[in-house]
Design a binder for these strands. Structure first.
Lengths: 234, 234
DNA sequence: CCTACCGATCGGTAGG
DNA sequence: CCTACCGATCGGTAGG
């Protein structure tokens, strides 16, 4: 599985503090040694192994479902013994939340970067193509277990967690709306934009159920077909 | 929860025999009493309670997921004690399979009836409207836990079970193809019909994630919007 | 992070 | 279909 780019202190705190980070922050007024902070061997190692747990959890939650994937399986996937994930995460549920958080943070970064690469005067249709193409990458590209877990394990979150993830997905989806509204006003998107967004995300998200990277269609092909379906001629 | 119309001996044998029916068939050459077969009190009761298990299982599998819904919960939902579902079903997994089978058999019957009600010369766009509207009913209408379970618990089936359900879904989906091909040839469906089918089912199936019967949109509204999105002007 | 363990729960069964 | 039970597994913890 491809690695998700790692910016640990950031990724884990994108949303509200949620009690999932077992590493206590340095006391506010604490005296710090001067010079470049040197991580000890143990600290470096800790971040890596923590992330190994997250990656293994994403893979197993996706393959078996949250309830059916045991914390022992996840520990083994990270090369640890049975109870050790609980040194890094206070509960199995908190681990699920971190997987979803990290997946959405990465998806949002990827989408923002794709939009930033576009010329400011790009036509709405090309913006939609870019959004669709990036979304396929997020869903189906290498290392793409995080977002499918988010899509299919929503019911395993508690209310507070749902609220946290909703903020991330809400922001992600909001970036589609100006484009959809422009297409609607230009006459190439017949449905009303709000409902169109729901259907379009459904059409794309569902691809995790049937897409095979060894099948005939590339992500570029799929993007062209989806664009054609939603906006008429491609 | 609305009852699924009950045609027990049919529903359970639509697909290949799968070892899920605990009621042994009458021996082939057995001597039968003449006249209308009278069911005993016990037999009638048995069918009803069996079906109560199936309905409770559908509801709980949907709400909690297959792995997280316990057979004890299901037993309680049917007014039984802990181990009693295993009198009717050899395993929890067999119960899941029956839920999916029954859901798909009902969906197929509903779709067939909707198509049969159409005039033979109905335009392709009206056929698609009918198919979409019926699919929403199947997904979101009263008593609609069975198909969502099928959609979201695929990974909990074993290979033989997947094959069995695939036959049902394959037949269901195949009924959309002539209509999609006609629209494609007529120029009102821009994507290629095979890929369009995958995206369209995704768009519709995803609605189980966001639709609320207490929300503003009716199933008729949604049908109009979906038709507009896929084929241009409604 | 490992070792050893706990209480709870689970799917499933025997015997009636 | 109930009663009483079994072995297995699970999330999580104490103590080092």
């Amino acid at each position: 599985m491809a690695k998700i780019p790692q910016r640990s202190p950031d990724v884990d705190t994108v949303v509200l503090a949620s009690g999932v980070s077992p590493v206590s922050p340095a006391p506010v007024g604490a005296r710090r040694p001067r010079g470049r902070p040197r991580k000890t061997h143990a600290e470096l190692d800790e971040g890596n192994r923590r992330h190994l747990i997250i990656e293994g959890a994403a893979r197993l939650f996706r393959a078996k479902g949250f309830a059916a994937a045991s914390t022992r399986d996840i520990a083994a996937a990270a090369g640890m013994h049975g109870g050790s994930p609980f040194y890094h995460f206070e509960s199995k549920n908190a681990l699920l939340y971190v997987v979803m958080q990290e997946g959405m943070a990465q998806a949002a970064r990827s989408q923002q970067a794709a939009l930033d690469r576009m010329p400011a005067d790009a036509p709405a249709r090309e913006r939609l193509r870019t959004l669709i193409r990036n979304h396929f990458e997020v869903l189906l590209g290498p290392g793409s277990d995080f977002i499918p877990v988010m899509l299919y394990e929503w019911r395993s979150l508690n209310d507070g967690q749902r609220e946290g993830i909703s903020k991330l997905t809400g922001a992600y989806e909001a970036q589609w709306m100006p484009t959809l509204r422009a297409l609607h006003q230009g006459g190439s998107l017949a449905a009303d934009p709000r409902t169109a967004r729901l259907f379009i995300f459904g059409a794309l998200n569902w691809s995790v159920q049937w897409f095979s990277p060894r099948g005939p269609a590339s992500l570029d092909n799929l993007t062209t077909q989806a664009l054609a379906l939603f906006t008429g001629e491609a």
